[in-house]
Design a protein around this nucleic acid. Sequence first.
DNA 1: CTGAAAGCGCTTACAG
DNA 2: CTGAAAGCGCTTACAG
Lengths: 335, 335
Amino acid sequence: MKTKITLKELSKLLNVSVSTVSKALNDSPEISPKTAERVKELAALHNYKPNPVAVNLKKSKTGTIGVVIPNISNSFFARVLSGMEAEAQKHDLQVITYISNESLDREKQICELLTSGFVDGVLIAVSEETQRKKEYDHLFNLVEYEIPVVLYDRINVPLPADKVGVDDENSFYDATKFFRAKGIHDIGVVSAIHHLGVGKSRIKGHERAMPDGEELKLAVSSKADVLKQKIKDLISTKKIEALLCTDFESAIMSARIAYEENIKIPEQLKIIGYISKEVAEFLTPSISYVEQHPQEVGEKAMQLLSDRLEGKATAGRYSEKVIATNLVHLESTSF
Amino acid sequence: MKTKITLKELSKLLNVSVSTVSKALNDSPEISPKTAERVKELAALHNYKPNPVAVNLKKSKTGTIGVVIPNISNSFFARVLSGMEAEAQKHDLQVITYISNESLDREKQICELLTSGFVDGVLIAVSEETQRKKEYDHLFNLVEYEIPVVLYDRINVPLPADKVGVDDENSFYDATKFFRAKGIHDIGVVSAIHHLGVGKSRIKGHERAMPDGEELKLAVSSKADVLKQKIKDLISTKKIEALLCTDFESAIMSARIAYEENIKIPEQLKIIGYISKEVAEFLTPSISYVEQHPQEVGEKAMQLLSDRLEGKATAGRYSEKVIATNLVHLESTSF
DNA sequence: CTGAAAGCGCTTACAG
DNA sequence: CTGAAAGCGCTTACAG
């Protein structure tokens, strides 16, 4: 069993002071090359590693970042986390994860915890409930405590903070334009998240690509059975030719209903949805999707935070980055 | 802008010593009820929270747990993490996540970092590469540093540590028995992870439920195109009636090939697979799956670790928990 | 170039 | 019941 050696013990073995050992290991120019070498040698021999807790206390920082995730089972967020972790590694930062489960209360609890000094900064995608109720006091609280915050994905929050979002609006603008260019004009939009910022943006993008004044064909509801009925109405009764789905649930549901109603995809109905690559590719038929580059969202968010922690960002000025999306065409949009 | 108040500042305002304040806030019986109240009142007013870094240094612990995840895009692991986080919360532990991306090298790096004192304990599912090469020195290293380790999910590692696994073997034993009871005897097994411990266990469970000496009908390969060919052979040429799939990829691929070969599910071919609920339910047809209860795996793993940290576990004796699975029957196994 | 001292923000034996 | 002191393991002005 190995036991961790401390600076003090090292200094005793070397017959020099603790200060000297510390400086030597931190490559201080004050130390003579000779002793520096002696010290480093012994440190390596004993596999010395500074106690990070002590270093952090001394430096008044924690070296860790708090990441708040609304729902980790959503593969988008899982991949965002992966990007954050990769970027954190580059900056020697540790990532502490907190899962809000889309609950405002839990999110408040987490923010409360976060103000007590566990982390140097926070990356957060606010919960659904938070967005719905527009309660942001707990976030402002973080800012008041001078804890740098970066909002990611769900950035439609009036908070003085850096933000990294997905280009939701343009994704559906592009998708709509794509269909129209192919001569398809009866385009429906399906959404189970129309009440959230990202859902609204996507629908807005679609609207922007449609002729002025033309009524939109929407099937929206956060209740599964209601949504199901509305989709059925859209594709069976209204004979829509193409569907844009703002989320996993509505995309899968649309494909399913088409199957049940004996409407062939893509021959009679084309679909583009927000689904993760992993699932989209494997469906039968495979569903064309909007690639959101979650990894990049995570990397960028961590990068902005790290810049701010290192003083590379101007105080009081916040940047807002939008990660471009692109359409990946699979079977559901083949012509 | 609020700034964090310290014990010292508090003591100055109260005209008592730092020790007294500390004891009062920690409910020490040494302190008179009167001063205790005075102290607590002012602390509450100033929203005092002890600096966790200082507390941890004093107590020679970190209050954090390192969780190593092979692949966070795998929804099984995402849900395990969710369970860990929930349990950690109960014990006032923070969760630091590290993603190995199924790489042995990255895993070694992470373990190296972990030995330098960032965490009090480690929860790890070893990477695919680690399992394949059977290189466990970096894990033994953790143990030598007296950092408690709990292995989860991928527990087929000869390490003196607590372990929490999924009952892989029985899941396929049960599934096979289920088919046989229904009069189906031509059962095939498809696997893209036959080289991993969990894959082997699942296949073994199937074998155990088959009559002695009967040759197994396997389609296994970690290469997509090879596996595809083998599946096709199994269901088209060999006329298998039911398929057990050890993983997401092989399950989805099997369903896809059945579709392409015009073999009807479930009429001509039944399928049971290891797929997450979220996807299984939405497929057309929906695929019956093995529910693994990942949340529970995560909770249990964190619980074992917490027990050990709190001295509730006997040194040198390790427990191994197996979380039972159950079959969820959807369309692909309807009769 | 080396080391003694102060201090990061706490906790806890010990003395009074 | 209260407080002075030591100490957790470091870093860093400052003195020599």
